[in-house]
Design a protein around this nucleic acid. Structure first.
Lengths: 186, 186
DNA sequence: CGCCGAGTTGAACTGAATCAAGAAACGTGG
DNA sequence: CCACGTTTCTTGATTCAGTTCAACTCGGCG
């Protein structure tokens, strides 16, 4: 889940105040586990500084589902919305400070403030569109194209995250990614 | 885009009335093109009877992106939300009657009726979760598993739609799908 | 220095794509 | 109701992108 700076909805002062009041800022050291599999993830993390990674274990392998950096949200998406135990882990890629917004608070603010609910809708809509694009990519692009797309969207990703995670995010193996990078280096 | 019968939000009478008033029901014969590439798709189609298929042309090949049947929505998702020309065609799989809801009307009702906006949010959220599952499927499942998943979700799909469209929806070739079906027939 | 995690490289293997041809089903008009 | 063309589906042979498994390199760090 992700929020673009295109978000054009202004929240009223009182809403911002209420938000600030019911919000906690937490700092996680690099490598910390923020959410564990099996937990109910009933909060959103809005990242102020650093980065978080959502992943899950598939047959013992670590599969990255989502990266989030400054100004973006993460949560365990199905756990949050369906109120089921999380299949995901979320960990800090680097030392990270994040605003923690619990679902209760969000639902409360949505009920009180029209604008807040509209903002929610916008964020969910953007996420939906993002996922839709990812599907097109997965369906038709070669490993090479997938990697290059990622680079255009997040040029700095290779500095921040080890290749294994990038590979699993793209749905390819580490070895394939390594070969791709070799080719484009020439 | 899809609406589950789990949708638990009640719309007030007045909202339903307003909705009914600004809504048109159209009937499309089998094979009719409902939306054409390049058009602005600024409406939602809610299917009463029959089925619609969203597809696009990728290097001249017909690629199915979405099926929708009774009680479900379709639109050209990026065109609708981003107000850009549609990359998709939408066609009637069978003779189909559908409610046509224009974006204007929807936005108007959302502004007036809280419940309507909540319903929108719910639908978008469900669609987002659905897409997320599709991504997991595309990333890790074999052609065989993808097909079997589809069958559990839409057991009747093979009666309604030719295999080519099912194949492109799953991101596999017609030939592969045929072979899969042969194996499971034994 | 030597270990360890991260990345690279190579070789063999495999699931699915592609290309090509034929069989079934289906509809339409005579 | 049958003949014919079209569309849909099946089958086979070949090729290819990407996986798997295994060994090797490199850079840090106790």
């Amino acid at each position: 889940m992700r929020i673009d700076n295109s978000s054009s909805i202004d929240l009223p002062q009182s809403c911002l105040a209420a938000l600030a009041e019911s919000t906690v800022t937490l700092t996680f050291p690099k490598g910390a586990t923020v959410v564990r599999e099996g937990q109910y993830c009933n909060q959103l993390f809005f990242i102020g500084q650093g980065g978080l990674r959502a992943y899950y274990l598939k047959d013992g392998r670590d599969i990255t589902d989502w990266f989030a950096f400054e100004g973006e949200f993460v949560c365990s998406i199905r756990s949050y919305f369906l109120k089921i135990p999380s299949e995901h882990y979320i960990e800090a890629i680097e030392s990270t400070t994040a605003l923690v917004l619990s679902k209760n608070v969000i639902d409360g603010l949505s009920a009180t403030y029209r604008a807040f609910e509209q903002l929610s809708l916008q964020i969910v809509t953007e996420t939906m569109l993002h996922l839709q694009q990812q599907i097109v990519s997965l369906k038709f692009e070669t490993a090479q194209q997938k990697y290059q797309n990622l680079l255009t969207v997040r040029p700095d990703i290779t500095q921040k995250v080890p290749l294994t995670h990038i590979a699993s995010y793209l749905g390819i193996t580490l070895e394939t990614l390594s070969r791709i990078r070799k080719k484009s280096r020439i």
